[in-house]
Design a protein around this nucleic acid. Structure first.
Length: 192
DNA sequence: TGAATGATGCGCT
DNA sequence: GCGCATCATTCAT
């Protein structure tokens, strides 16, 4: 049986949450039906001292969700065409979040294929932009409470996951800081 | 098969 | 106006 994660899960050190969030199940009750996937790749963005974190330049309208309480969804548009989904972590007033980079489809694959057609299912969620496209998430979902029924995470019966920790991807500052975690054995991890 | 580049919208400087 | 936590396509080797 799986179980919805409470706000307490998110309200901890971002690195710990990032490590444990792997192999969790993300569930989204979309207008078209229920979608779910197994998380296999994330990145941590921690605080105003992290040059790669959006919050490093202070609080703005765009990133204000990160400054709020843990357990909310932070969604934003990147490069004019792709959305990225983050999970806000740590206490109120401390800006930090975990970027969801890749997952493996479980329920609702047919719906994901409608959202992002001409894709094979194993690569359907292999990247942050692709994930949001297949799930139908946009910045209209920014600020959703992950303890509600619409969008949330579930724990599952722990497979043993081989976690690899490396540097983050696609950023210009703060490259040397570790913060990317992924399941070594998953085929859905974004690599070229 | 790897590297370069265009697409494209929005918020910040 | 510029640059961005990306992706798919093209071009070069």
């Amino acid at each position: 049986m799986s179980k919805k994660l409470s706000r307490q899960f998110y309200n901890r050190a971002t690195i710990d949450v990032a490590r444990e969030i792997l192999d969790k199940q993300i569930v989204y009750n979309s207008p078209n039906g229920k979608l779910s996937a197994r998380i296999v790749e994330v990145e941590a963005y921690i605080g105003e001292g992290d040059p790669a974190c959006h919050a490093s330049r202070g609080k703005t309208k765009r990133n204000e969700v990160m400054f709020g309480k843990a357990g909310f969804a932070y969604l934003y548009l990147i490069y004019g065409m792709y959305n990225c989904l983050n999970f806000v972590t740590e206490k109120d007033g401390f800006p930090s979040a975990i970027l969801l980079r890749a997952a493996e489809p479980e329920e609702g694959i047919d719906i994901m294929l409608q959202n992002n057609f001409k894709k094979e299912s194993s690569k359907l969620l292999a990247g942050p932009g692709l994930f949001c496209k297949a799930f139908g998430l946009t910045r209209e979902q920014n600020g959703l409470d992950l303890t509600n029924e619409e969008l949330y995470l579930e724990s599952r019966n722990n497979n043993k996951v081989e976690i690899v920790e490396t540097t983050r991807i696609g950023i210009s500052d703060g490259k040397e800081l570790l913060g990317r975690f992924y399941d070594k054995n998953s085929k859905a991890v974004s690599k070229r």
